[in-house]
Computed example of a mutant assay.
Amino acid sequence: MGTLTGHLVPGIVLYGVGLYYAVLASRAILRGQKLLSPPLPPKEKQGQRWWQRVQVEGLVKVGAGMTLVLGEFFFPPGANHFPLVDWEDPRRPFRNHDSWQHATIFGVFLLSALADFASQVWLARPSVPLERAATALAVAVLLLEMGAHVEHKDALEVRVHALLLLPAVLMLLVLAAEVWAPDQPPLWMLKAWLTLVFGSWLLHVTSILYAPLSGQRWSAENPVDLAFAVTFFCWHLGFGAAALAAVYSLCSLCHRRHSSSGLGGAWGSYQTCPMDDSGGELEKLRPRGLSSGQGCPPAPSCALSCSFPELSEEAE
């Protein structure tokens, strides 16, 4: 990761994940969902294949994690940063410390994807707290490794990486809160905003350290450069909020357009089909044409009648 490409690729991935979170949170709020992602039915009622039940976040963790871990050790082609110990030296010193630090960060996020898969594929019911706890653990490892990563660096690298830690600390707190309260829309939006800030600032750090837009390298000895690093980071806080507001506005326009046209579809009002008949919730969602003793129709009809009662009424 100690190269332009090594900072650029994670920055792009994180910013893309931030936009994905922003769209997901905006749609969930507009549709009145109680959870960020629509819950899957119990395992025995799922008709999809296992890879169709995995959410995008887990797939991104696997793809990006494996690519970045391999890139740390074997990029550029022909390089080998995998040896951990120099066995030829009698003192047996450690080698490739930065590569192993970065690989540890990416590897823990890769392991958190396994928790996502276990929750969404193998457990009887998906466990949101398990998924959030695994991601929170990965962010905690990120904080520990980045704290050690800035040791023996110049003042500029310490400054830009310290600023990068701020959204990471707040993200850890948000994920920890979601373990116990996954149904809070403010946490959804805050997580999207922090991910956007983290991704955009990482991209800016790439420019500062490896490809300055002005063509002049930033100086760790110049207090003005160090001061502007903080100023630019504050701008990224505003840029992240503006991007989040823009995504929400676009989602709101699409939601209103589809609602006014009566198309519904992916942007229509969403209400999950209950998994049991407790509390009378199933009776409230059952179309008027069905008697109370008939029960909920099979899976496809149930999903249609529970999510869009008006469509069932028209069909009758």
Results as ranks from 00 to 15, higher is better:
Ala155Asp: 13
Gly71Leu: 05
Ser214Asn: 09
Phe106Cys: 03
Ser301Cys: 08
Ala64Glu: 03
Val54Gly: 01
Asp89Arg: 02
Leu170Arg: 08
Val128Pro: 14
Val128Asn: 13
Gln294Cys: 00
Ser207Glu: 12
Leu40Lys: 03
Leu311Ser: 05
Ala220Leu: 04
Arg125Trp: 10
Ser249Trp: 15
Ala103Ser: 13
His255Cys: 05
His102Thr: 00
Ala136Pro: 05
Ala315Leu: 15
Leu166His: 00
Leu111Ala: 15
Ala168Glu: 01
Thr206Lys: 04
Arg95Gly: 07
Pro212Phe: 09
Gly279Val: 04
Val69Glu: 04
Gly78Phe: 03
Ser260Pro: 02
Leu166Trp: 08
Gly240Cys: 02
Gln101Cys: 08
Gly58Cys: 05
Glu221Arg: 13
Leu19Asp: 07
Gly289Met: 14
Gly295Pro: 06
Lys61Ala: 07
Ala177Phe: 12
Arg92Asn: 01
Ala79Asn: 08
Leu173Asp: 03
Pro298Tyr: 12
Gln294Glu: 15
Phe106Lys: 01
Glu313Ala: 10
Val174Gly: 01
Ala299Pro: 00
Leu144Phe: 13
His258Trp: 14
Leu137Tyr: 07
Arg95Trp: 12
Glu157Val: 09
Asp86Pro: 03
Arg53Leu: 09
Pro126Ser: 12
Asn96Val: 07
Phe75Trp: 15
Ala64Cys: 08
Val85Arg: 01
Trp100Glu: 04
Ser26Asn: 06
Leu19Lys: 08
Glu157Ser: 11
Val128Trp: 15
Phe308Gln: 08
Pro93His: 07
Arg257Trp: 15
Ala227Asn: 04
Ala176Asp: 06
Gly107Asp: 00
Asp154Asn: 15
Pro182Cys: 06
Glu151Ala: 11
Asp276Tyr: 10
Gly58Ala: 05
Cys251Tyr: 03
Glu310Asp: 07
Met189Lys: 14
His102Pro: 01
Ser200Leu: 10
Cys254Phe: 14
Trp218Ala: 02
Pro185Ala: 06
Arg49Lys: 07
Gln46Cys: 04
Asn96Phe: 09
Pro10Gln: 10
Ile12Phe: 11
Ile208Pro: 01
His102Tyr: 13
Arg27Ile: 00
Leu164Cys: 12
Glu313Arg: 13
Asn222Lys: 10
Glu281Leu: 11
Ala103Gly: 07
Phe308Tyr: 11
His102Trp: 11
Leu250Ala: 13
Asn222Leu: 03
Pro42Lys: 02
Cys251Pro: 02
